[in-house]
């Protein structure tokens, strides 16, 4: 477990003030921490019963120390979203350049690694195991997710990368 630096905690809290939330626990019993209408809030969910309370910022800071992975994910998502913005706009060179930073806080489903290989192609040939990974994704109908994650699950006729994918 790697602790977050003061700057990382500060950035994570800023992301929360912008609307992101942190969930601790499983699907049927968890606590969600967020910032809403100028206050830090905690919502406890237990088998569909919910309890809401206002908490002090020190609670969030303590949580960032005890559950750094949950907060690290806020940092990962913020960086991945910058890649998404470039990819969605069809700015593929810019998107490729953003990938190392987008994956700095993890690449849990290897989408960053896969897109790095795809965006480097054809200048750099794909490794056989990468080709096999892609074949499995296409035949297993999960390649759609690979594209949608890169497009932030946005779709529409203005989606440049969707058009690029079918050329």
């Amino acid at each position: 477990m790697t602790l977050l630096s003061a700057a990382e905690v500060e950035e994570a809290l800023l992301r929360m003030k912008e609307g992101a939330s942190v969930q601790i626990g499983g699907s049927r019993c968890h606590s969600t921490y967020s910032f809403y209408q100028g206050q830090w809030r905690r919502e406890d969910f237990d088998e569909s019963a919910t309890y809401e309370s206002v908490v002090a910022e020190s609670v969030i800071l303590n949580l960032a120390e005890s559950e750094p992975a949950a907060f690290r994910d806020l940092l990962r998502v913020a960086r991945w979203n910058r890649f998404v913005e470039a990819f969605f706009a069809g700015e593929l060179h810019a998107a490729r350049a953003l990938l190392p930073e987008a994956c700095r806080y993890g690449d849990p489903n290897l989408e960053g690694e896969t897109w790095a290989a795809l965006l480097d192609w054809p200048a750099t040939a794909l490794q056989p195991q990468m080709v096999e990974r892609l074949r499995r994704k296409v035949s297993g109908m999960t390649a759609y997710h690979l594209f949608m994650v890169a497009m932030g699950w946005k779709e529409g006729p203005r989606n440049s990368s969707a058009r690029a994918a079918i050329r």
Binding site: W121, R135, A143, R163, I166
Partner: peptide, 22 residues
């Protein structure tokens, strides 16, 4: 792009169909 990389694989035309629809 995918066709050139993975060749003819089941599911490829479905994927292309999805993106054409989008």
């Amino acid at each position: 792009m995918l066709l050139a990389i993975v060749g003819q694989v089941a599911g490829l035309h479905y994927l292309r169909s999805v993106f054409y629809r989008m």
